[in-house]
């Protein structure tokens, strides 16, 4: 039941998380920051704006991104296979990339191509992470993971660590905010959206927060306090990293993912498999 509620309320919850993030980030920079509900104020403002678009395909893909993102979350929370949920996320990326490539704007197109580089970095790792959870729990079912007696995070610490470093890639945080890169390509795929259509994209990003942090929560097994703690740690860590690091080149990101994170996760899985 709770997962149905969570799925339905995901955009709201994601908005709160995003608002919280802005507050936390501001405090880390010794600013006051916006109010917690600022994302929702933005939401109402954007919805009230005159709808402007480049062309229908582009606007539509923004909306499709939002729907696909929500659906991926629904699959994660309501389905029983984590692996399928990982692949559902690709549909959202498809909508984003197709939309961003469809306009004649170099920033947007460059952002779309960089988005692909993000995918090549985190997607194999997501698969490895799910497989590692399977190895620990013996099932791909999210319900089995959440009723597992042990402590997954202690059995696959390296995988968890690798995933922690993958979160900035998925959520577009520095040093891996390469596809958005506000100072460089002005938001990448987002740049040409405006008004309600931008709002769709924006809300899609909030849902992605819930999607990612649900995976973090899974590392706690049946110990929900541990899961919650991990989510808080991951949240603070990602924001700290975001605040304290400069943006990397996309080549560096891909190299980091493939030369460091993936081997690390694979090593953990091999060791665990041998241990068992």
């Amino acid at each position: 039941m709770i997962n149905v509620i969570l799925t339905i309320l995901a955009p709201l919850l994601g908005g709160v998380v995003y608002g919280l993030e802005r507050v936390v980030k501001a405090r880390m920079q010794r600013r006051v920051g916006p109010p917690l509900l600022q994302p929702f104020y933005d939401f109402f403002k954007l919805m009230d704006k005159r709808p402007i678009m480049i062309h229908s395909l582009h606007a539509l893909m923004g909306i499709m991104y939002f729907i696909a993102e929500w659906f991926a979350l629904a699959v994660l929370l309501l389905g029983n296979d984590l692996l399928i949920a990982v692949f559902f996320h690709v549909i959202a990326v498809l909508a984003l990339v197709i939309g961003a490539s469809s306009v004649r704007s170099p920033y947007s197109v460059l952002g779309a191509l960089r988005e692909l580089m993000h995918m090549i970095s985190y997607e194999p790792l997501m698969v490895l992470m799910v497989v590692a959870l399977y190895l620990v729990i013996g099932s791909f079912d999210i319900r089995d993971v959440l009723s597992y007696e042990g402590y997954p995070v202690l059995e696959i610490p390296l995988v968890f660590f690798a995933f922690l470093l993958t979160i900035p890639m998925m959520l577009q945080k520095s040093p891996f905010d390469i596809a958005e890169a506000h100072q460089e390509i002005i938001g990448g795929p987002e740049i040409e959206y405006s008004g309600p259509f931008y709002e769709a994209l924006y809300t899609g990003k909030w849902i992605e927060y819930i999607y990612v942090f649900t995976f973090v929560f899974l590392f706690g097994g049946s110990h929900y306090w541990l899961g919650a703690l991990l989510v808080v740690i991951a949240f603070l860590f990602v924001n700290l990293l975001d605040n304290s690091s400069a943006r990397l080149d996309f080549r560096a990101m891909v190299r980091f993912a493939w030369a460091f994170l993936i081997p690390m996760a694979a090593l953990n899985i091999i060791l665990l498999a041998l241990w068992q």
Binding site: R50, P51, I52, M53, I54, H55, S56, L57, A59, L60, M61, M64, I67, A68, F71, A74, V75, F88, I91, L94, A95, I98, V103, R104, S105, P106, Y107, S108, I186, I191, E192, S194, G195, F197
Partner: peptide
């Protein structure tokens, strides 16, 4: 769900025409 999403993504652009004002890309 996935099928409908993907069908919408690849077919809908030909049918959906939003009634919104059209502008050139901003492109800074």
């Amino acid at each position: 769900g996935a099928l409908i999403l993907l069908l919408l993504i690849h077919v809908l652009p030909y049918f959906v025409k939003f009634k919104a004002d059209v502008v050139h890309p901003y492109n800074c």
